[in-house]
């Protein structure tokens, strides 16, 4: 795992292949939770956390359960169940152990189960770091890295978007474009700007 490979995964996940702006994963929370910066930041942290740990779990399940029993076609159904159970479990643990985190992140966790970005990143990891049912070199670490920075990219887009939308509240935007349509136009221009990192090579 060379330094250059690590860096190119980071730039690719945060900018070039940004989950929201380029792959359109997790658009629903992106539009729903981006009205206030504070809430957006909370959601961003929650997504990074869930994405990274779900990746760890699904990778292990895939490597040590699905592959040995040749059940790779059950990937989708297994992954969604693992993620849903995991999120439920985290919710329970947090509610018991730390009311502080519960207050900060609690409301976002149920939303994350149906966030396609989380399922998306787990499937993507399997697609990119397994070749013919065998893990590539450092597959587990690369998967964790990829999902962590996919989460960072999601959080970045979400937080930037929330700042812009807060400002637009005061604006004289055309009535028919207010709300979701203008959010799409902003996202489009942000995506246009992020395309500047296209073709990134170290």
């Amino acid at each position: 795992m060379s330094f250059a490979a690590v860096l190119s995964i980071i730039v690719s996940m945060v900018f070039v292949n940004n989950f929201v702006l380029s792959k359109f994963l997790g658009l629903c929370p992106f539009l729903g939770v981006s009205k206030q910066t504070k809430i957006a930041a909370g959601m961003g942290i929650a997504v990074i956390f869930v994405m990274t740990l779900s990746t760890a779990l699904t990778w292990l399940v895939y490597r040590f359960l699905l592959i040995p029993f040749n059940l790779m076609y059950l990937r989708t159904i297994t992954f969604i169940l693992v993620i849903a159970t995991f999120v439920q479990f985290v919710e329970m643990v947090i509610a018991k152990k730390s009311p502080l985190i519960q207050r900060a992140l609690g409301i976002y966790l149920p939303l994350i189960t149906t966030n396609c970005a989380v399922l998306g990143v787990t499937v993507l990891n399997i697609n990119s770091f397994f070749v013919n049912g065998r893990p590539v070199y450092a597959s587990f670490m690369l998967s964790l890295l990829q999902s962590f920075f996919a989460g960072v990219g999601f959080a970045l887009a979400l937080i930037l978007m929330s700042g812009i939308r807060e400002r637009l509240e005061l604006n004289n935007t055309p009535k028919s474009l207010r709300g979701i349509p203008v959010a799409f136009i902003i996202a489009s221009l942000m995506s246009l700007a992020f395309m500047g990192f296209k073709g990134f090579v170290f």
Partner: peptide, 17 residues
């Protein structure tokens, strides 16, 4: 490219509004 998709959907929704 991705920006075009977002733009199209944004303006379609605006037009429907």
């Amino acid at each position: 490219l991705p920006p075009g998709a977002l733009l199209t959907l944004g303006f379609l929704m605006g037009g429907l509004n």
